[in-house]
Amino acid sequence: MMPGFAERVNVAVGRDVAKPGLQALGSHAKLIDPASSRSLVGSVDLDAAVREDCPRDPRWDYGIGVKQGSGLQAVWVEVHRATDGDVADVIKKARWLRTWLSSSPGTLKQLPAELVWIADGRVGLSPKSPKRAILAQNGIKFRGSRLRISADGRVD
């Protein structure tokens, strides 16, 4: 049987850090709006989990395991202030996440993934800003102040 999201996370970090549902997101869980909570199979506060190992790195915030049909995907969520000036910081964090995942043990890195930036507070990033194109070219989807996850596990 294929390992689940929590097992993969725990192997990657090296200890039991995964939490059920959205518990790892704490107060930020309210920013996630799933059509069905049954599609959420676990979460990790990655920032806290690797803080001791990577104290000075631009760490990514959270990971959420989401069932997609018969498969599983990781939705990596960064909650960060959203202005044009913050785009570069979020891209740095995405690059860190990529490096961390690729060097982590186990199979977490093999999961299909989405990178999503949710605004912390009011959004100061225009929908037509060229900075949004730079985000897209770095594989990051911007989702304003709320992330909807459809019943079939898609990031809407």
Partner: peptide, 10 residues
Amino acid sequence: AGDAVASAVL
């Protein structure tokens, strides 16, 4: 368009 490009990058 941004989402499609982000998905393609991944």
